[in-house]
Design a protein around this nucleic acid. Structure first.
Lengths: 160, 160
DNA sequence: CAGTTGTTTTGAGTGATTCAAGACAACCAG
DNA sequence: CTGGTTGTCTTGAATCACTCAAAACAACTG
C-alpha cells in the first residue's frame, strides 16, 4: 500500500464514520455493503438498484444483487432514502429525504433531476376534492426532454 | 332471447356505435376486443391490464391477454387513453384524457381517484430550475389512505 | 367480394423484483 | 475480548407485469 493509498483510505474511513453514525441513528447495523451503498447514492443521487449494485460490487466483489435490494429496502423502511418509481424506468433511490422536493424526468433517457417546489407547499398539498382520502403527500413529476436528448433529437431531424 | 335481452342488446349496439366512431376517429380499426376494452374502461375508470382482460374475456372468451395489451397500447398511442403507473401498482388506463387532471392514490390498496388541478395550471407546470430540460408536462400524485383502508386500519388498532 | 393492411392468437422470453433457507457477521452482555 | 443473539448476506429459485415474434385471421378499401 502506498502512502497515497493510506491517505485515501483514511479519508474513506473518516467518511465511513459519518455514514456509520447515519446507519446507527436509523437503528441499522453497520456493514460494508451498507456503507458502500450509501457512498454509491452520494455519488449517483438517483441511482437504480443495478447501478448501486455495480458500484458496491466494485469494492466488495462478493456482494450479491439481492443484498443490494435488501440494503435499499432497509434504507427506505428506515426513512434513510426515498424510493421513486418514474413510469417507464426501474425504481430509483435518493438520499435527499424529508424535504418536499420534486423531480424532473427525461422521457427519452430516464435521467432524473431534483427540483424544489415552486408554489407554496400547502397549495401543492391540497387537492380540491379528496374523495374522503386522508392525504399525506403530494408527489410532482415534471416530464420533458433533457439537454442531451434534445440535442440528439435535433441532430437526427436536421442532419448536416 | 327475451324482449329485455333485445332491448339491452340494442342499447349495447347503440353504445358500440359511439365507441366505434371513437375508434375510427382515432384511426383505429373497429374490432370486438377494442369495443369491449372501451366498455371495460368506462366501467372501471382506472383499470389495470388484467382487470380489462377479465372484463373483455367475460364477453369474448377467446380473447388473449396479449390482445388486451395490444389494444391498450394502441389506445395509448392514439391518445385515446392515458396510461398511469403509480409506484407500487401495475399500469392503469383511463379514458379521461386531454384535461390536465391528477390522481389520488391509496397507499394501502392502490385505489385511484381523479382530482382536478387545484392551483392554476401554469403554476403547476413550471418548476423553478429546469436544469435545461424542455418541460412538457407536470404530473401530480397525491398519496394517502382511502376511507375503506383507513377504517380497516382503525379497526385493527382499536378492536372492540 | 377480393386484396391489403392491420389485429389477434399462440408461444416464448425478458427484466425488475421478491421469497426462502442457511451461512455469516455485527453488536451487546458478561 | 469472547460467546450468544439478532439481524444481515449469500445462494438459488420463483414471480409478476410486460414485451417480442410469427403465423392465422378479420376489418376496411376499391
Amino acid at each position: 500500500m502506498t502512502s497515497t493509498d493510506v491517505a485515501a483510505n483514511a479519508a474513506a474511513l473518516r467518511g465511513d464514520d459519518e455514514l456509520a453514525h447515519t446507519l446507527r441513528d436509523a437503528g441499522l447495523k453497520v456493514t460494508a455493503p451498507r456503507l458502500a451503498a450509501l457512498r454509491a447514492l452520494a455519488e449517483h443521487p438517483h441511482a437504480d438498484a443495478d447501478t448501486v449494485f455495480r458500484m458496491v460490487q466494485a469494492e466488495l466483489p462478493t456482494t450479491s444483487l439481492q443484498a443490494v435490494y435488501g440494503v435499499l429496502g432497509a434504507f427506505a423502511d428506515a426513512g434513510l432514502v426515498r424510493r421513486i418509481e418514474p413510469a417507464g424506468s426501474s425504481a430509483r433511490y435518493e438520499r435527499r429525504v424529508g424535504d418536499n422536493h420534486h423531480h424532473l424526468v427525461c422521457r427519452d433517457c430516464g435521467r432524473v433531476e431534483d427540483v424544489d417546489c415552486v408554489v407554496g407547499e400547502s397549495a401543492c398539498l391540497t387537492p380540491g376534492d379528496t374523495h374522503g382520502f386522508q392525504v399525506s403527500e403530494a408527489e410532482v413529476t415534471f416530464w420533458g426532454t433533457c439537454p442531451a436528448c434534445a440535442e440528439a433529437a435535433a441532430a437526427i431531424a436536421e442532419p448536416t
